[in-house]
Design a protein around this nucleic acid. Structure first.
Lengths: 255, 255
DNA sequence: CGGGACTTTGAAACCCTTCAATGCCAGTGG
DNA sequence: CCACTGGCATTGAAGGGTTTCAAAGTCCCG
C-alpha cells in the first residue's frame, strides 16, 4: 500500500535488507549518507526533547523511537512510533514540538544536520525529493494514527493498532512480537492501561486474537479486528455488545 | 510558531495577502503556478474521492476543504480541515486514502498534475523544496490534530479545537467565525454532535467562552481553554467537576 | 407558512477511567 | 538459594463521562 522512500537508501548500509528497495537514485545520496551520525541508544534514552532547537532530522536504523509530549496534567501522549526506515524531525517550527526517545534497547538512530542537509537540498533536486518522500511517509504514518485514534471503542482502537503494527513490522505472518508495553500502547491510543488490557482480553475471548504471551500476539480474524468487533456479519450470542462474556457464533476468518 | 511554505507563492495571485509571505524564491515557481487549474466549488462538492487515483496535488485558495473517510458503520471521520494556503493530496499510495470535499460555498481549490509536478521537481530543487515545505506543513497540521484527539474529555477536545481554529483563521482577535457545523466538529473530533454541543455549553457556563451565535464564538479565557477545564489553578464552587452547574470562582483570564 | 438542516437539552444505558489489589517475572543482594 | 524489589500485566468495583435515543427549539429558504 504505502511505497518506500527514495531517501531510504540513505541508511541502506545499516537498514535490514527488507526495508531497503534497490533503487538507482543514490547519485549524491551516498555522500549525504556519510553526513549522518549514528548513535546507539538504550531504552528511555533521549533523542531530542520538546522545545529543543530543531536542527536535526533523524532516521531510525533499528529498534524503535517514541515521539511524545507530556501534558500539563502529567499524561504522556505518544504521537508517533518510528520504526526502522522511518524518518522524523520534520517541522516548520524552529523547535521540536515533541520529545523523542528510544523505545527499546539497542536502538540505532541516524541523524543529519538540518543546516547542512537544507543547504545541500537547496541545489540538489535528488536530495530535496528524497526528503520530500520521507516527509510524505511521515504524513501517511500520522494520518493512519489519526484513523486509529478516531475509532470509538477501545477494542476497535487496539485492534486497529495491532493490524497497523503487524503491517509495519513484517506484514506477512499473523504473529506479532509487540515491541512496546501496555503502557506505551495506552499512551499511543490515549486510553488507560487497564482499558488496553481489557480490550486485549475481550478480543481474545471473541476469538479475534490469541495471546501467547504479553508481547506475543497472533491475529486469528483480521477482518473482525479491523471492524472493531460487533459489526454487521458478526453475530453475538446474546445480542448485546461490549459485555465481556459475549462470543462469536459465526464469522468468516481471514488472516 | 509554524512558519510558512516556500511554495505558498504558488497561489500568491489568489491567496489572501496575509497568507502570502513575500519571498524571493519564485524563480521557476511562477511557471509552476501557471500549471495549476483553479476550480470553484459549492459546499459538498467533491474534490476527490477515497481510492481515486492520486494524480493531483491540491491547494486551498479560499474557503475550506474537509478530508475524510466513511467507516463501515457509516460514521464519517474528518482527518483534515484544509484552509487557505494549505496543500493536501500528498501520499505515497497510488490512491488517495481520503475523500475531500468543499466545506463551504464558493471554495476555490487549485490543483496540480502530480505527473507534471513530479517531473518538474525531479530536476528543479526549488520546486522539490517547495513541495517538501508544503508536505511538512501538512505534517505539522496533522500532528496538531493528533494532539487534540488525544485529549481525554470532550470540553478539552473542543477547547483545543477552538484555539487551533482561531490560530489558523486569524490568530489575532479572540473572536471566531466558525466555518463548520457542529456535525463537522463532531466528526473532526470523533465525538457525537450532542457532546460537542454540551461541551460548548459547559465551556460557556464556566466562563471560558461566549456564544454570540452558533457560528460566532469569543474566547474569554484562553489559558483555561487550553488546559481543558478543571486543572490546577481552577477552583470550582462545589468541588466536583463535569457537573454542568459547576462554575469558576477564581481564575486568571488571558486572551 | 411549512420543510429541512442545524442546534440544544433531557434521560437512560453503556463504556471508560480511576482506584485498588493481585499475579507474574527478571534482576539483585543477602 | 531465596527473599525482595520494581516494572509490567491483569482483574474487580465504583464513579463519571459519553453515547444513544428522543424531543423541542431556532433559523433559513422555497
Amino acid at each position: 500500500m504505502i511505497q518506500h522512500s527514495r531517501i531510504s537508501t540513505l541508511a541502506a548500509s545499516s537498514l535490514p535488507s527488507s526495508a531497503v528497495p534497490a533503487k538507482n537514485q543514490r547519485n549524491q545520496l551516498d555522500q549525504l549518507r556519510s553526513w549522518g551520525e549514528t548513535v546507539k541508544l538504550e531504552r528511555g534514552d533521549s533523542v531530542c526533547r520538546e522545545h529543543d532547537r530543531a536542527d536535526h532530522i533523524h532516521c531510525v536504523v533499528s529498534g524503535l523511537v517514541s515521539r511524545y509530549v507530556i501534558r500539563p496534567d502529567g499524561h504522556r501522549q505518544i504521537v508517533d512510533l518510528a520504526m526502522p526506515g522511518d524518518f522524523f524531525g520534520f517541522t516548520h517550527c524552529r523547535q521540536y514540538r515533541f520529545a523523542a526517545e528510544a523505545g527499546i534497547d539497542s536502538t540505532m538512530v541516524m541523524r543529519f544536520s538540518r543546516r547542512r542537509i537544507e543547504a545541500f537540498a537547496a541545489s540538489n533536486a535528488d536530495v530535496a525529493n528524497g526528503l520530500r518522500d520521507a516527509s510524505d511517509e511521515a504524513l501517511d504514518r500520522t494520518e493512519q494514527h489519526l484513523l486509529v485514534m478516531g475509532r470509538i471503542t477501545a477494542p476497535g482502537k487496539v485492534g486497529s493498532f495491532l493490524i497497523e503494527i503487524i503491517r509495519r513490522l513484517n506484514g506477512q505472518t499473523a504473529d506479532i512480537a509487540i515491541p512496546i508495553s501496555r503502557y506505551d500502547i495506552a499512551d499511543f491510543l490515549s486510553i488507560s492501561v487497564e482499558t488496553v488490557s481489557r480490550a486485549l482480553t475481550e478480543l481474545r475471548q471473541r476469538g479475534f486474537i490469541q495471546l501467547m504471551g504479553p508481547r506475543h500476539i497472533r491475529i486469528v480474524d483480521r477482518r473482525a479486528l479491523e471492524e472493531g468487533g460487533a459489526e454487521e456479519g458478526t453475530v453475538l450470542r446474546a445480542g448485546e455488545r461490549g459485555d465481556s462474556r459475549a462470543r462469536i457464533v459465526a464469522h468468516r476468518p481471514s488472516v
